[in-house]
Simulated assay, not measured.
Amino acid sequence: MTARKHESWDDFWTRVTGGGTETIRGVEIQIPTDVPLAMEQRLKALEDSESEDDIREMVGLLFGADVLDRWAENGMGLLEFKTVLAWGMAHAGGAKVTFQEAFDIVLAEEAAEGKAPNRAARRAVSKRPSGGTGGPSKRTSSASTSSARRTSRA
């Protein structure tokens, strides 16, 4: 019988989940490989909360303590944050999405809500052509749309 090589839990879990690290806005984070139990419980309790402390707590559970503050200090914007959050939650749920795929998910959600997050994102979303020709609308002259002035008959 051959002796089995001992493998630590951390080494085993990293091997089966494909965990690792990623640097985002200058901050090295562990790539989420599972949704922490504490996060699952807190999400239900904070379902409608928009408190910055609650958001910081959730991000801390997923990516590590103080990560949100460090990202903010390094200039992370809202669209960027939403993209990283979508990417992290997808990885935590077992889907290994790219940053581009996470960005596309965020843009689709923003479009579904009827708002483009910023100029760059609006440009990234495909635009429908105008009318049946696919070209821009043409200005209608005021002569064809105005009515003739009438004088009163007193």
Rank of each mutant, 00 (worst) to 15 (best):
V84I: 13
T83L: 07
A154N: 07
D66Q: 08
E110M: 13
E50Q: 11
G75L: 09
A143N: 11
G60A: 03
V106M: 10
T14W: 04
A124G: 12
V67F: 00
R56A: 15
A3T: 12
G88D: 04
S49L: 06
M58G: 09
S142H: 13
G20M: 03
D104E: 15
M1N: 11
E73W: 03
E40S: 14
G26Q: 03
G64P: 05
A148C: 08
G75T: 06
D69W: 01
F99V: 11
R128V: 15
V16Q: 03
A116L: 08
A143R: 15
L62M: 11
W71N: 04
E40H: 11
V106C: 08
S8I: 06
I55H: 11
D10I: 09
M89A: 10
T23Q: 12
A121E: 06
G64N: 03
L78V: 14
D104A: 13
A65E: 14
S142L: 13
R15N: 01
L62P: 01
R123P: 04
M76Y: 02
A102G: 00
T14M: 03
R150E: 15
K82F: 05
I55V: 15
G60V: 04
G26D: 01
A72G: 10
T98H: 00
E7V: 15
M76S: 05
A92W: 00
L78M: 12
K96S: 07
R4E: 11
A90I: 02
L61A: 02
F99M: 08
R42L: 13
V59M: 08
E50S: 03
F103W: 08
V84R: 06
T133R: 11
V97M: 06
G131V: 07
K44Y: 03
K96G: 03
E50V: 14
S147Y: 06
N118L: 07
L68F: 06
V106W: 02
I55N: 10
A45P: 01
H91T: 10
W71M: 03
T21K: 12
G135D: 13
S51A: 14
T33K: 13
G134Y: 08
V97S: 09
M89D: 07
R149F: 12
Q100S: 00
K44D: 14
V97I: 09
S126Q: 10
V106Q: 04
S8H: 08
T83C: 07
A95E: 14
M58Y: 04
G134L: 10
